[in-house]
Design a protein around this nucleic acid. Structure first.
Lengths: 241, 241
DNA sequence: CGGTCAAAATAACGACGTTATAGGACGAAT
DNA sequence: ATTCGTCCTATAACGTCGTTATTTTGACCG
């Protein structure tokens, strides 16, 4: 065991190690002993840096929320509010697929370590507006408000519109990650995108406009990664790994 | 420990005990020792009746799927296909709320005991059509097909329509159970039902017809329980428990 | 009445989260 | 420069989990 005295990066090192183990081996791999050994420190460091495993899990989920916020921050804000919100949805799905177990930790029902119960209680009291998941929800509400401002959908409470959009995107992702859409083939073009068109049409958009906007948002799917920073890196010749 | 030799009802007794503990105390209460003690048998019975805890969990989830099938079987089949499918959605939500942890076990991402992974692999091979969750999915596909047959929505693959409907209902339920809609008040009338109207309107129904059908399906919400068998029992005077 | 075998209760094992204990490296004071 | 005090770390230990091995019990049959 290396005796690393600098504790600020030990915290993030443990979080990153836990996140990687969660992605590679699933929730059963999140063990104090395994994470500490993988990070090259003693098991006790988990209890001195965090309070225990629930707090480490909470920190892992918080990091996931922050990554989501960072991804939303990089999203372009065009004059097509519908396309913007579907780019958000596709980015949301990409992040979920990148680490399904982390997505489950963040938005699943099984509250490992009573994380969300505490957060949501605070949110109900309107105290913790800066909670990470509240930030991601705020992005969605603002995007829903732009739908109304742009005149693409009927005037309605943005929070209600956001809840509807989030419901179906989260439901699709959850079921897709569980494998329920495996028999459908390309479930994004068969389910998620038509579902989005139907949704915004039901909210008041015209079918033609909704179809065009969703198609515009889905264009970025064909070249696998083509968003801002990734596109810049693509211009350089790819060195051998 | 009572020495019950009859093993057929021991199986269901363990399943019922596990389901009850799951509902009352959450997933952390599902322990071989606790379930066996609560059922009044030795711990070993879990391993002789089932193979181990994963198999018991699988049996619990199977019982949940069967309860869902039974509930769908009792649903009325009226001439309003849209109202029928929303009655299914509301019944689905009621069952989920009755035992959120069981719902998580059945449809959540965290595969406790690698249950769904095995089942879905078999489903991909089209071998296990009789798998319990396949039955519930079949009900939804048939209900979606009736939407098309009745001319309420555009002609489309019923499996795709079913996937869309399931996505948003499951997403709403999952987020509601997690508490994300607590700040919205009556999220059923604010989110779930408008979401359903928007959905079927997007699928091709007229706003007026969709609104009327969803309203008809939601009528059963005001008297808390009023479905077939429960209504018959209501006519008798309720005896003291 | 005794022997045989299956099934159940109990004890034990490895692994987990967590806690207690012991050891060792820095800073400060003399 | 030495020594003491104070953290931080590594190691060991405890209780509990799922699971397995061992023993005990009880029923059936000759």
């Amino acid at each position: 065991m290396a005796t690393l005295r600098e504790s600020p990066q030990i915290r993030s090192k443990l979080i990153n190690t836990a996140t990687r183990l969660l992605a590679q081996q699933g929730p059963s791999a999140i063990q104090a002993r395994a994470i500490a050994k993988e990070a090259g420190v003693s098991t006790m460091v988990v209890y001195s840096t965090f309070g225990g495993m629930p707090d480490l899990l909470r920190a892992v989920a918080d990091a996931g929320y922050r990554a989501l916020v960072a991804a939303f921050d990089e999203m372009p804000r065009t004059d097509d509010a519908v396309a913007d919100i579907f780019r958000m949805a596709l980015a949301y799905r990409a992040i979920a697929r990148a680490n399904p177990h982390l997505y489950d930790l963040m938005f699943g029902l099984s509250t490992r370590g009573q994380y969300r119960a505490i957060e949501l209680e605070a949110a109900a009291n309107r105290d913790a507006e800066s909670a990470p998941y509240q930030l991601t929800y705020g992005y969605l509400v603002k995007a829903a408000a732009r739908l109304v401002e742009a005149g693409r959908v009927r005037a309605d409470d943005p929070e209600v519109i956001a809840a509807q959009l989030w419901s179906y995107v989260h439901g699709f992702i959850s079921l897709e990650l569980s494998g329920y859409f495996a028999h459908l083939g390309d479930c994004v073009h068969k389910v998620l995108l038509p579902l989005g068109i139907n949704m915004v049409v039901g909210l008041g958009d015209t079918p033609a406009a909704a179809t065009a906007s969703v198609a515009a948002a889905a264009e970025a799917l064909k070249p696998p990664a083509n968003t801002t920073a990734a596109a810049r890196r693509k211009t350089r010749a790819k060195p051998a790994a």
